[in-house]
Design a binder for these strands. Sequence first.
DNA 1: CGGGACATGTAACACGTTACATGATTAG
DNA 2: CTAATCATGTAACGTGTTACATGTCCCG
Lengths: 223, 223
Amino acid sequence: MSGMAAAAPGTNGNGQARERKPPGHRRGAAPPEMPAEHALLGLITLTGGEAHGYELARHFDPAHPLGLGEILRLEQSMLYQHLKKLERQGWLTVSLQPQGTRPPRQMYRLTEAGRAELRRWLAEPVARTREIRLEFLVKLFFALQLDRDRAARLIADQEDVSRGIAADLEAQLASLAGRAGDDPAATTELTFRRMVLELRLDQTRAVTAWLNAISGTRGAARA
Amino acid sequence: MSGMAAAAPGTNGNGQARERKPPGHRRGAAPPEMPAEHALLGLITLTGGEAHGYELARHFDPAHPLGLGEILRLEQSMLYQHLKKLERQGWLTVSLQPQGTRPPRQMYRLTEAGRAELRRWLAEPVARTREIRLEFLVKLFFALQLDRDRAARLIADQEDVSRGIAADLEAQLASLAGRAGDDPAATTELTFRRMVLELRLDQTRAVTAWLNAISGTRGAARA
DNA sequence: CGGGACATGTAACACGTTACATGATTAG
DNA sequence: CTAATCATGTAACGTGTTACATGTCCCG
């Protein structure tokens, strides 16, 4: 099956080393949202601008009172990899803080670039309805605690995006209704396409309604 | 940072080789649904019980008339890996079919175990609301084309599951409402938890309504 | 003669998960 | 004595993505 001669790793037929672009994300797709990493930036800010890994990990426990762990889980093993990646990106700096006999804490602090990235991310609504359940909720979690005004704007912007998605789906449904009825063989596939679009539309409308409802929850938090 | 001495690969402190369980899925989580692989089983059945890789790949094109490519994308490179995995699982067999000068086709056929697995998978509703958008739609796609009765039962079973999820979320919301009001410091976190539960409930209710609507869609589309 | 369809693959890399390693302190 | 908590990490493995390899046939 795989007995064919393959070029040696990192070479082409001429034996020349090639430059290989890092994989990155799919061409047509939107860039990844990386909610876990931004959550770390947010958590460090929430805990007073400085935190160590173990402390951050506790926030991802499903039983943690603030509730982040209920929407986003982060294994301890990934935590440190994310923190290293964030450091490579220049979004945070690490400093060792000795602890006597215990293993020294790695104290993480945001850089100015890290703070800017967190602000940018918090201001950006998500592009797709399926990203509401994870990415948007994480944004909302931090926006509510860091800056109520920013949270209100985020909700409003997201509502606009969701309305746009709904309008687009409605247009697609309308164009589907145009070519209906004549060919019974094509009816099955049209039926399925319509079902898919209707599901997406219903989900998007539910999100829009929810966004509208929570934007109304202003001071009702106190009552 | 990583200058510490680490044990050699596959050994412990005593130098003994260890048995290592394969990673598998997360302990608390449900087993993965593997929609792409089951879609391949379904596609081979749809195309008359026998198909080659290239032919299967075309069905995942977003422009394909049947519409599978709009909900599930499968890169060509993954396709052959999935087919190999399905063969290892014993769900299909491969036979080479020479094509003259062209590269020979690998013809894939389901085994009896493969047919049983496809039936089992098609009869099983998904457990979580977020799996509706991908896993359930893929099941529905095949159920509609292979067996209308099975499709109707699948929709009904899924509606039951969704109602159960909704009831559970409603109970959680009620228990949240119980401990409200007294401590203003805890109010912010309760507000967020409530928002999360309300989003999930709205999404689940939208799914339930959609399932109910499509179960009524026999021949005609509704207004 | 160039480009797309046909037809099958591998190489490199990122990422998430499980399991394991290290080693002190504190609670039962 | 044993387990949990504190605190950090690595090893192995599966899997998904991008990019590239290989060759024929057919169309304009």
